[in-house]
């Protein structure tokens, strides 16, 4: 353990860029904000996809920063249609390739079909199309870039915004603590569809992300990968802390990294000693208004959810943080 509590074994991630493919499929020159965790994730994910892939992308931050006519940052064949239908578009692409192949009109191997969307485009407006595509069992991979709010339109809350976070439509006030609902569990929703490969990932753990994407695209049938993308603009964090915050999300068990293969849960990054959530919160302006009782409430929720996950994974229990005994408000409100 170093002073941040990072296990020695995970330090080799630092050298990831030398060990992973040199080809760039998401090129520089796009217009994402400084310190954008999503752009970082897209770059690694596209390397993992390799050349033989076709991408359908939802409207959102990543679409806007990367595809201003007549320029593009995408080296893959790439199609943007609308906000809420990316999974449906991808299912069409997959079906289209299938029939072309069956009729002998597509020589060689079929490319991997990948759909990408933000947390709004996935867990809110795009949920129906995603549910339909997963239920129909198309052979495609859906990747959710989760920056935990509608950042593109100016940081409005989504169902993926964490409890207590400040956004422009969940402002804290006399009668509000900020976001009043718990983050929607997209992984559980995907698992409930019987999706054979489901995983969470983070660009702060590059190898973990890289191999999860590899597994996802090689899985026959649908696959779902939920990627936490730190957003300095929306999270009110320093732009040089993006990778650090992504790690803290995992180290505090706020966003554990795991995969679910044919319904079997497995923790892919084990954290021997869980850090208190306030270590993660204090670097972000969106949680600045939270007082200790509220943070304690969140801590208890995070701990119990992580325990549930560990049970599912049958993984060893780490050391949990101790909750301080300051008075607690009514259920954190």
């Amino acid at each position: 353990m170093d002073k941040f509590g990072v296990a020695q074994s995970q330090k080799y991630d630092v050298y990831a860029s030398r060990l992973l493919p040199r080809e760039e499929y998401f090129t520089s020159g796009h217009r994402s904000c400084q310190g954008c965790g999503e752009a970082l994730a897209v770059r690694w994910v596209c390397k993992a996809l390799g050349k033989e892939a076709v991408i359908a992308h939802a409207t959102g931050c990543m679409e806007i920063v990367s595809s201003g006519l007549p320029q593009t940052a995408w080296m893959h064949p790439w199609l943007h249609v609308a906000f809420e239908n990316t999974a449906a578009v991808a299912s069409g692409i997959e079906a289209g390739f299938k029939i072309l192949s069956r009729k002998g009109k597509w020589p060689g191997r079929l490319p991997k079909v990948v759909a990408m969307g933000g947390d709004g485009g996935t867990s809110d407006i795009g949920l129906q199309a995603l549910s339909g595509a997963m239920e129909r069992g198309h052979n495609f991979t859906y990747i959710c870039w989760d920056n935990e709010a509608y950042m593109n339109t100016g940081i409005q809350r989504s169902s993926s915004t964490p409890y207590g976070a400040m956004t422009t439509t969940s402002p804290p006030g006399k009668r509000s603590i900020g976001q009043a609902t718990w983050k929607k569990n997209m992984v559980a929703i995907a698992v409930a569809h019987g999706v054979p490969y489901v995983a969470t990932a983070s660009p702060s753990y590059v190898f973990d992300l890289y191999f999860k994407i590899k597994k996802a695209i090689e899985t026959p049938g649908p696959a779902y990968v939920h990627v936490l993308c730190v957003c300095p603009t929306g999270w009110r964090s320093a732009t040089d802390l993006t990778v650090r915050l992504g790690r803290l999300a995992v180290e505090t068990a706020v966003f554990p990294l795991y995969e679910v293969v044919n319904g079997k849960y497995r923790l892919t990054v084990e954290v021997p000693k869980i850090r208190p959530v306030k270590d993660y919160f204090r670097l972000q302006g969106r949680f600045r208004h939270l007082r200790e009782p509220e943070i304690n409430f969140i801590q208890r929720q995070v701990t119990s959810q992580y325990e549930l996950l560990l049970k599912k994974c049958e993984a060893a229990y780490p050391e949990f943080p101790v909750i301080s005994h300051t008075e607690e408000s009514q259920e954190g409100a």
């Binding site: 249609v81 069409g92 692409i93 289209g96 029939i99 199309a129």
Partner: peptide
């Protein structure tokens, strides 16, 4: 129609 956009863009 979204799926049709996909199939048509794939070339079917």
């Amino acid at each position: 129609l979204s799926a049709c956009v996909g199939t048509s863009a794939a070339g079917a």
